[in-house]
């Protein structure tokens, strides 16, 4: 638990730009809610090719996998009802590439639609939060006595080790 918290703090205090962290969190969330398949590998490739914060991505991916199990029924129903549209069915029937991405599966389609909707808002929101943390919260926190005490604690030792 301390290790995970330390990792989060490390990323927040690192040189990584807020956008790199923002995209890592957004892509991690959508990799988590999509069933594992070619789409997941494409997201992984994007994360590797661009300077997106890898450790944030992996951490969020692992945690947001639980979201898939929580939302599976609703995503499946959403995908199924969306998937009844004639133009979409024709498109999927005629494109083996889209079938290769498993978009003709109701759950994958539902998860993909949700991913498209939440990708940019999550990236933007996370970026804003990181900026807020670094410019507003961090300087204040550092002045608090309790934080100074904590710095001398086990969490701080773990954090130092990771540095």
């Amino acid at each position: 638990m301390f290790t995970i918290l330390a990792r989060i703090l490390k990323v927040l205090n690192s040189e990584a730009s807020p956008w790199q962290i923002g995209w890592a969190v957004a892509l991690g969330v959508i990799a988590g809610i999509l069933p594992f398949g070619l789409l997941t590998l494409i997201i992984l490739l994007v994360v590797c090719l661009f300077t997106i914060n890898l450790s944030s991505f992996l951490l969020v991916w692992a945690f947001s996998k639980a979201l898939l199990w929580l939302l599976a029924d609703r995503l499946e129903q959403m995908g199924w009802s969306w998937g009844q549209q004639d133009w979409l069915l024709s498109l999927l029937s005629n494109s083996e590439t889209l079938q290769l991405l498993h978009l003709h599966h109701s759950l994958t389609l539902g998860a993909f639609l949700l991913s498209v909707i939440i990708l940019f808002p999550i990236a933007w929101l996370t970026t804003r939060l990181v900026l807020k943390y670094r410019h507003v919260l961090m300087p204040h926190l550092n002045k608090w006595k309790v934080v100074q005490l904590l710095k001398a604690s086990k969490l701080a030792q773990v954090y130092q080790r990771m540095q």
């Binding site: 499946e76 999927l92 029937s93 389609l109």
Partner: peptide, 13 residues
């Protein structure tokens, strides 16, 4: 298990 159905494609291969 995770739910999932194949959509009723016009021509399922």
């Amino acid at each position: 298990e995770l739910p999932g159905r194949i959509l009723p494609l016009k021509q399922q291969p």
